[in-house]
């Protein structure tokens, strides 16, 4: 049997062949992540290529939630890049960011987030006093979209509010930019946008969700560390995780804000 013939055999079965290779070799890790197709949000629209998207009516039956799998985050910063472009966030301000936690053998915790993790951590040196690393991981942060938000409570002019489908938004045509919501938010996700001079924060890409798309950061995440979906939809990935044995945690639970942002495999050191 000569090489040429072998090549033909491979080519004829190429698809199944590659499939087998993929499943056999690295199926254990990467392939576990269920691909987030637009099935979640109904049919793919044909006019998608033109970006002429129709808005879907508010899905009042949905219970949207965001999940971050800390063990899957590689700290590449793609989510932050995508978020800044998608939402015109001014430089130096952050709708989302990625923190790096490093715990040394003395159980000393070092946290950093240069440029909000936007440039990735591949070339970010560790703090010079760290001698030996015991544990290290990345923690993406974004709006917790609380069920009991402190920010909407304190807003004097009701410019920030929870929509009927459960998103906390800021009406930038009504906001007076007093900054009270920034004080009230336990998670530091709010800021006064330098360009609009109004309060601003992550919306979980409400404008994309209403068009049946995933938030920009979820779309950009290469490892599926960021997940978004409807907890009332048994087919959704978040539903499956929520009802599985995974360790789920929310940030600053004691404050009673009831965040809808859940962390999977989160260490208790994370604030």
């Amino acid at each position: 049997m000569n090489v040429k013939v072998t090549q033909e055999i491979i080519d004829s079965n190429r698809r199944t062949f590659i499939d087998k290779v993929i499943k056999g070799t690295i199926g254990g890790s990467l392939m576990l992540m269920i691909p987030m197709s637009s099935k979640l949000f109904g049919e793919v629209l044909s006019e998608e290529a033109t970006l002429k998207n129709t808005i879907n009516p508010m899905n009042l039956k949905a219970n949207y939630c965001f999940m971050v799998d800390v063990s899957a985050c590689i700290g590449c910063g793609n989510c932050c890049v995508a978020d800044r472009k998608e939402n015109n966030v001014p430089e130096g301000q952050y709708r989302t960011w990625v923190e790096r936690y490093v715990i040394d053998m003395m159980n000393q915790i070092y946290v950093d987030s240069p440029n909000g993790g936007e440039k990735g951590y591949a070339n970010t040196p560790l703090h010079e006093t760290i001698k030996e690393v015991k544990e290290a991981f990345f923690v993406p942060k974004l709006c917790n979209m609380c069920d009991e938000p402190s920010c909407t409570q304190v807003c004097p002019v009701a410019a920030t509010f929870t929509t009927p489908d459960g998103f906390v938004l800021v009406d930038k045509e009504h906001c007076v930019a007093c900054g009270y919501c920034i004080q009230a938010c336990p998670y530091g996700v709010r800021f006064i946008n330098e360009e609009t001079k109004t309060a601003d924060k992550c919306t979980w890409c409400y404008h994309r969700v209403r068009k049946g798309k995933l938030p920009a950061c979820v779309n950009a995440c290469p490892t599926g560390a960021r997940k978004f979906g409807d907890l009332n939809d048994p087919q959704s990935e978040v539903f499956k995780i929520y009802h599985s044995a995974s360790r789920l945690r929310v940030l600053k639970k004691d404050l009673g804000n009831e965040p809808q942002l859940y962390y999977i495999n989160l260490h208790e050191e994370v604030v």
Binding site: T152, Q153, V154, C155, P156, V157, A158, A159, H174, C175, V176, A177, C178, G179, Y180, I192, K197, T198
Partner: peptide
């Protein structure tokens, strides 16, 4: 002087957030 949008200051009187309720709205 502190407000980012001082021209909207009267929103505090016109749409005071009594739902929250916002302590600052009551101040107006």
């Amino acid at each position: 002087n502190h407000l980012g949008q001082p021209q909207r200051a009267l929103n505090m009187l016109f749409t005071p957030n009594y739902v929250g309720p916002s302590m600052m709205a009551g101040f107006g």
